[in-house]
Every structure is written in structure tokens, then in C-alpha cells.
Amino acid sequence: MSKQDITYGTQKRHMGMRAAKTLSNTAVYIILAVISVIWLIPFVFIVLESFRCECHYQVGYIIPQKWGFTNYIELFQNTDFPKWYLNTFIIALFTAAIQTIIVLCMSYTLSRFRFKMRKALMQFMLILGFFPGMLTMIILYRVLKDIGLTQEHAVPGLILVYVASSGMGYYVSKGFFDTIPKSLDEAARIDGATRAQVLFRIILPLAKPIVIYTILTAFMAPWGDFVFAKYISFGASAGMNVAVGLNGFLSLDQIMNKYTLFCAGGVVVAIPVVILFMCLQRYYVEGVTGGAVKG
């Protein structure tokens, strides 16, 4: 066998490996493409429907025959949607702010302080967290109704509901705080910093990803909540959030006139969440995994 042949042989073997790799890659990509198409179709469908102007009811085709913004215009002019949107935005904003503060304080305390019943408290909250929140719905409704925070005044009521149990969601951020060396705290304390100063000056700047993660999750939750919002707004349009309000468009007497408006509403609802997500995306991944490494 000449030298050339050997080279040729090796080359052939290389080609084979590359081909196999290409083949497996192709297969993987095809599977991924199929999955992503399946996953994306509903979203694309909703966006297309929202721009369809020829009629308001569901049709048997996907691509609109007439494009335009009439659904969006009608949504904002002829329905209570702006009110619902504002409600949800206010709820999300307040929830995000208050919940973030509570969660961070809670995590910091449980991570850095040692006090009696600390372990017991953590376990108690863990067990409490196993119960589905829906169980408390009836009693919460009664309480809120008695203090007058239902129906038209559902917005503060809902903020209260979302924020009330937020202290229990400390796990991920506590895990993250635990990864920050304690010696940093100690150094700051020796230099005369108070506990609060340690949290705000030392820990928080280091824990930026987790702060952002907490804000994001707290901000996003109210946009999709339906069950609580439905009960607490109890038929009063002025107190509804987007999910409850838009759901009304799907009722028997409205769906034929409001279906495309519903889709337009869905798109508008997605916008703030998408923007926020895009801006803060890189922190988000860090935040979620950060706590897990050494949690």
C-alpha cells in the first residue's frame, strides 16, 4: 500500500466521522425545528389573527385576507380594555416593588441571621407552601370583601393577595445569598456598617441577577392570573385585569364579534412582558441558576 493510499484511507475515515456528525446534527436540527414550529404556531396564529380585518369571528384559514390595525383601534376605543390594562399594569408594578423588597429582606435575614426557631420557621413555610393557594380563595374573598377591596376596588385587593405570601418565596434568593462569602459581611461590619448597610451596599450589588429575577417573576405573575382576579373583581369591569376582561370576549354572546379583538388583546398584553424580558434576559438566566449552584 503506497503512502498515498494510507492518507486517502485516513481521509476517508475522517470524512465518515464528519458525515456521521453532520447526519446526527441534521436529525437534531430537524427535530428541534419541528418542535419549535409546533411551539410557535399558536403565537404566530394569534398575531396574524390580530391583524385580520375582514371579520371578527373565527375563520378556517390562517393568513388574513385584509390586513390592518382596526382590531387594535377598536380594542382601545370601544371596550374597557385600556382600563383593564392599566389595572394590570398598576398591580404588576406594585406587586413587583413590594414583593421584591419583602423577598430580599426575608432571604437576607434567613441567610445571615441566626435566631431561635429559624430552621423551624423555614420548615413551616416550606410545608405551608405545599398547600395550593386556591385553598385559601374563599376565605380571602370574604376578608377582602369585608374590608371593601373587591369588585370596583379590586386592584388594591389583588395587590394585597399577590404580595401577602411573597415572603415564602425566598428559596432561590436565599440560596444565592448563601453563595456570597460571609467574610464580606464581617469585613463591612468591622468597618462599622450596620446590618442594613451590609445588605444594601455589599450584598445587593453582588446579587444583581437575583434581584432582577425576583422583579421579573413578580411583575409577570399578575398578567396571567385569572382565578383570583376573576373572583375578586366579581363581575365589575372596573376592577378586572386583562385576563379576566379578555376572557369575557370569549363568552357565547360575544365571541362572534370579539374574537379578533381578543387576539389583539393577547398581543398587547405580551408587549410589556416581552420588552422587560429582553432587557433583563441575561440577568434572568444567571439569577435562576445562581441560587442552584450552591443552594
Partner: peptide, 21 residues
């Protein structure tokens, strides 16, 4: 006047008569 459709109205009323229309 609130838009609460026929189906919903009955369900809501049963949950809380006091707060209903």
C-alpha cells in the same frame, strides 16, 4: 350596568349573592 353574561351571572350570584347585581 355591568356586562356579565347569562352563564356567568348565575354562577357568580351563587358564589356571593351579596355582591351580585
Amino acid at each position: 350596568v355591568e356586562p356579565v353574561g347569562e352563564g356567568d351571572a348565575a354562577t357568580q350570584m351563587i358564589v356571593d349573592v351579596d355582591a351580585g347585581g
